[in-house]
Design a protein around this nucleic acid. Structure first.
Lengths: 333, 333
DNA sequence: GTGAAAGCGCTAACAT
DNA sequence: ATGTTAGCGCTTTCAC
C-alpha cells in the first residue's frame, strides 16, 4: 500500500488536517510541526495522490493537447512550446491525436468533459465545421483554447498566425522571382488555415494582375498515395505552371518527389514555396523556400493563455496573431 | 455543477449503487432498470469522473510516456505507435519531455510515483546510468517499460532494436562501397543505443581489417552549436576520412551542413549513413542512406506489453528486439 | 434485484 | 495551533 497523509498523521500522532495544512504551507501551522511533518514525509518518500484532492477542488493539473498528428514539425514544436510552460506551472500534458478524423476528435472532446484534464489546447482537424457544436459546447464547460487551426465561428481564445498575409507574401515572392502561372496545392479547404492561405493567394493574384484561374487550385486529399497521383497528373498536364504554393509540409514533400519523377527541375522549371517547419528545409535538393510558422511560440502562448484562465478564472476572450516568416531558399531562386 | 451518479440516482429515485452497477454492466441489475438508467444518463449527457473511481481501484487509465524530445522523427513516430494501441484500450497518453536532462527525468519519474498514471513507457535520456536507482525504484512500484534507449542494468521489460547488428551492417555497407577510413559520430556515449552502435562499428572495422582508430570516434555533445564547430574541425583536419556513421539524426543533418560549408562532396569525397527516421531522407541533397528504426512498431509493442501487464497483473519480464532496416541511397553510392 | 453505508486520499469548514 | 468531521464521485461489500 502507498503511504498516505493519514498514515503520516497516525505515525506522528497528529491530525490529518494538520498534515494537509503543513503540505499546503498553511500559516496556521507552527514552523516546528511543519518541519517535523515535511521531514518525516520526505523520509518515507511520501508523494500525494494528485487525484484525491482533485475530487474536491476539481483541479487535476492536467491539460489536454488535441492535435491532428504529432509526426509533423509544426505540431511537435508546438508541443515543445506548450510543455515548456506546463513544466514551470507544474502541469502535466496529455496528448490526443485526431488523425484528421472529425468523429474521433468529437469523441475525444466528449471524453474530455469528464474532468480528466483542467483545460484544452486544440488544433482542429479538417472536416470540423467552423462552428462545430461539440467544440462550442465543450468550451462552455472547460477552458479551451484554439491554436493554429481554429473554429472561426466559436467565441473562444485563439492563437493563430498571419496565414493570409504570409500566403500573400509568398505569392508575391514567386511573382517577383518571375513566376506567372502559380498553382496552390490545397490541403482540405475547410481548414481555417487553408482558407486563409487560399484567400491570400487569390488576393495576391488579383493585386498583381496575374488572373486567378480556378484550375490552379489543386484540391488534395488526406491520402498520401492519392495525392501523389493527383499531383503527378497535375504537373504532367499543366506544364505552363511555373510556381507552386504547397499549403502544408506534406504537399511540399510530395511535390519534390513528383518533380523528381517527372524530371521537372526546381526552380528552373517550377518554383516551390511551402508552408513548413521542416528543420531539413535547407538541406533538401534544392533547399526549400518556406513560410515558417512560429510553432514553439504559438504553443507557448496558447499554454500561457490557458494557465492564465486556469489560475484566475477570469476569461477574457482574445485572439492573438503571431507572424510567420518567409525563408527564401533555392527552390524559388 | 457537473452531473454525477448521485444526481442520476436521485432523479430516478433509486440507489447510487444501482446506478453504479448499471454502468458497470453488472448482472445483478435487471435489464429494465439498466436500460432506464443508461438512457437517462445519455439524455443528461452524463460522463463519469475518471478519477473518482481511481481512488478506490487505483486505475486512472492514463499512461505516461517519457521521452528525451518530441521534435524528432523517431520519437514522434513511436508516440504514434503508442497512441494507436492506447486508443483501442481506452487509455490516455501523458507526454513528458526530459530534454536529455537526467535531473529532470528523475523528477518526472519521482512525480510519476504519485499514481497520476498507471504505467510508464520510457526512453531514457543520455546521462542516465544503466542501473539508475530512480528508474529501478520506480519500476518496482509502477509498471515501467523501456523502449529504444534503455537502462541495461535494470530487470524490466524492454523493447529495443538491433543497434549492434544494424551498425555493423552500416559499416560493412560503407566498406563495400569503398570507404576505408570511417568515422563514427557518437552522440552521448553513455546511451545504450550509442554504446551498441559504437560496438557494432568497432566490430565491423575489426572484422574487415580496417583497423579501429580511436581518433575516428568523434564524441559529440548535446549542444548543436558546439557540435557544428566540432564537426567542422573534424572534417577539416581529417580529410582522409571517406565514410561516416552518424549515430543520430541530428548529427547527420549537421554533417550535411558542414560538408556544404566545407565543399566536401557527398558521396564522392565522403559517404554518409545515418541512424534516422527522417521522412525527407530521400529528398535531401544527396538522398541520405539511413538505418531506420521501426519507431511505430517499437511504440506499439511497448504499449501492448504495458497494457498486458496493466490488465492482468502478471509481469513476465521480457526483452523484445525489432530489426532496423538499412535504406541505401545516394549518400553512399 | 436493489439499497445503505463505508471508504479511496485529500481538503476545508468548523470546532477546540 | 491543532483536531474533528463532512464531503468530493465513485465502487464495493453486505443487507434486505
Amino acid at each position: 500500500m502507498n503511504i498516505t497523509i493519514r498514515k503520516i498523521a497516525k505515525d506522528l500522532r497528529i491530525a490529518v488536517s494538520t498534515v494537509s495544512k503543513a503540505f499546503n504551507d498553511s500559516h496556521e501551522i507552527s514552523e516546528e510541526t511543519k518541519q517535523k511533518i515535511l521531514e518525516y514525509a520526505a523520509s518515507v518518500n511520501y508523494i500525494p495522490n494528485p487525484y484525491a484532492g482533485s475530487l474536491k477542488n476539481r483541479k487535476t493539473k492536467n491539460i489536454a493537447v488535441v492535435l491532428p498528428e504529432v509526426a509533423d514539425s509544426f505540431f511537435s514544436n508546438s508541443i515543445n512550446g506548450i510543455e515548456s510552460v506546463a513544466v514551470t506551472k507544474g502541469y502535466h500534458v496529455m496528448v490526443y491525436l485526431t488523425h484528421e478524423n472529425p468523429a474521433r476528435e468529437n469523441s475525444i472532446l466528449r471524453e474530455l468533459r469528464s474532468g480528466r484534464a483542467d483545460g484544452i489546447l486544440i488544433s482542429v482537424s479538417t472536416g470540423i465545421a467552423m462552428d462545430s457544436a461539440m467544440h462550442a459546447e465543450v468550451s462552455k464547460h472547460i477552458p479551451l483554447i484554439f491554436f493554429d487551426r481554429v473554429c472561426e465561428g466559436i467565441d473562444s481564445t485563439k492563437v493563430i498566425t498571419d496565414d493570409f498575409e504570409s500566403s500573400y507574401n509568398a505569392v508575391r515572392h514567386l511573382i517577383l522571382k518571375g513566376s506567372r502561372n502559380i498553382a496552390f496545392l490545397a490541403f482540405a479547404e475547410e481548414a481555417s488555415i487553408i482558407r486563409q492561405r487560399l484567400a491570400g493567394f487569390r488576393k495576391a493574384l488579383l493585386d498583381f494582375g496575374i488572373g486567378s484561374d480556378e484550375n490552379n487550385v489543386v484540391k488534395c486529399s488526406q491520402n498520401d498515395a492519392e495525392n501523389f497521383i493527383l499531383l503527378k497528373n497535375f504537373f504532367s498536364c499543366n506544364n505552363k505552371v511555373d510556381g507552386v504554393i504547397a499549403s502544408v509540409e506534406k504537399l511540399a514533400m510530395q511535390s519534390y518527389s513528383v518533380c523528381r519523377d517527372l524530371n521537372i527541375v526546381i526552380p528552373d522549371k517550377l518554383r516551390v514555396v511551402a508552408f513548413s517547419n521542416l528543420l531539413t528545409a535547407a538541406l533538401l535538393n534544392p533547399p526549400l523556400t518556406t513560410v515558417t510558422q512560429p510553432a514553439f511560440e504559438m504553443g507557448r502562448t496558447a499554454a500561457n493563455l490557458l494557465f492564465g484562465i486556469l489560475e484566475n478564472k477570469k476569461h477574457k476572450v482574445e485572439s492573438i496573431v503571431l507572424p510567420s516568416v518567409l525563408y527564401e531558399r533555392d527552390s524559388t531562386s
